[in-house]
Write a protein that binds this DNA or RNA. Sequence first.
DNA 1: AATGGCCGTTGCAGATGTTGCAATGAATGC
DNA 2: GCATTCATTGCAACATCTGCAACGGCCATT
Lengths: 268, 268
Amino acid sequence: MSQTVDRALSILPLLAEGPADLGQVADRLGVHKSTALRLLRTLHEHGLVHRQADQRYRLGARLFALAQEAVENLDIREIAHPYLVDLNEKCGHTVHLAVYEENEVLYIDKVESRYPVRMYSRIGKPVAITVAAVAKLILADLPEGERRALAEKLDYPMYTARSIPNAAAFLKELATVREQGWATDLGGHEESINCVAAPIRGADGRVIAAMSVSAPNVVVTAEELLTLLPLVRRTADAISREYSGGAPARDTPAPHTRAPHTPAHKAP
Amino acid sequence: MSQTVDRALSILPLLAEGPADLGQVADRLGVHKSTALRLLRTLHEHGLVHRQADQRYRLGARLFALAQEAVENLDIREIAHPYLVDLNEKCGHTVHLAVYEENEVLYIDKVESRYPVRMYSRIGKPVAITVAAVAKLILADLPEGERRALAEKLDYPMYTARSIPNAAAFLKELATVREQGWATDLGGHEESINCVAAPIRGADGRVIAAMSVSAPNVVVTAEELLTLLPLVRRTADAISREYSGGAPARDTPAPHTRAPHTPAHKAP
DNA sequence: AATGGCCGTTGCAGATGTTGCAATGAATGC
DNA sequence: GCATTCATTGCAACATCTGCAACGGCCATT
């Protein structure tokens, strides 16, 4: 580990507490002022710290830009894929990954069942939004107003007798899902197929994707499938953690809990 | 300036583009792998980079936490936010807030349009500095010398036919903007999008930030958008007053704004 | 006005940390 | 099974970093 870099990086959390002048920084680092000055200058050139009018230093907005760019380039599919494969190897069933985009829920990854009987679905295809377990999870996390507006606007095709029939029933189901943190689809799309699903959350606690395990009745009963729920949830949580940049040990809340101090606007 | 720290910090923007393995990092830094490894380790210990399952590196959660604190320390954002929300509710369009820092203009807050058609932009992203209305306002207020020097240094990408093409035209536009105290961008960044913007000033009269209202042609014409100018200016002025310590203006008390946000750390 | 204290800044010589090399280990692919 | 690729380690040479002391600007006090 590099001492110089270590010292420089230690300045950042220090400044996060509030602006500080050169002397304060040097003191808290335990180094000579000239050393602190040099480190601060380097941080400054990279835009990580900003010098305000009174010559004190504070964190730079560039930090924010950096974080934002990183979030934008995060590919949930790439991160999740190995976990999906792993889950498939453990349970043998079809595993799906879905995201929300423009009022639709889309499958973006899939690992096929190892059983001969497979269900039909296609990556990139919009899911049956009113019945699919992954859709329920994602929509349940939308802001109240948006959720309601969307629910009213949707069609409720009766794929089977167990399909959700109307907006009221759908909203009620979403409330349940939101409460319990997981979802199922028991024959709501195709008579003989059941799914269990769990949400994947970003660092701010919002649901950014959902994953599910699906299997036809002829292979496992709904009850048997439900026994996989803990595993599915654990996997989803692991993906959430990885997506959020790892378990930062200390002061960041667990990825699957709602951050208490979530800011007004959220990263996409 | 410290070479070691400089190299380490250069890794961050590199990783913001996407995950990279040790070799890639070493190559792009132009150093030996063992050197890159050490720097990455140090960054890792501080939580700024995260090692994913496939052993590649990406930016870590700690960076996001720091970024969060960095913006929270920008008290202009705290103060302005309710006004932005209020303005959005009055006109329905996308509202932006931007500040100047280290030769860049950055969006630091945004309230989304309530119309279905939205423009892209992201908080934290540097704005298109040569065409954005908010950038014009902020740069127009720089001291003569600095303004000219910056103008010469910039690139002038032709996003559209109406983009500002060169330093001379830019300086002329800045003079106009400085004179009139407001700015527009009429299709200079994206053909179909127009903006009107007004400056937010500190107690000493200097421009410390700028806000804008943006809308696509398909929703309102440029002329219609311009009728919002007085409202935008009034809002910006109200923010200026409150920021300068003046009593929060009574005409925009922001009735149902968010709860009093835990302020970060503010010096009296 | 002059003085003293405070703080940021600079140049420098010595010492410490850093660098790149070469070799090892581990994992993957052919 | 062997070859390849990649991360990792120990080490010696060296470049970089460190702390010191001195300078200069700024402000409040005398």
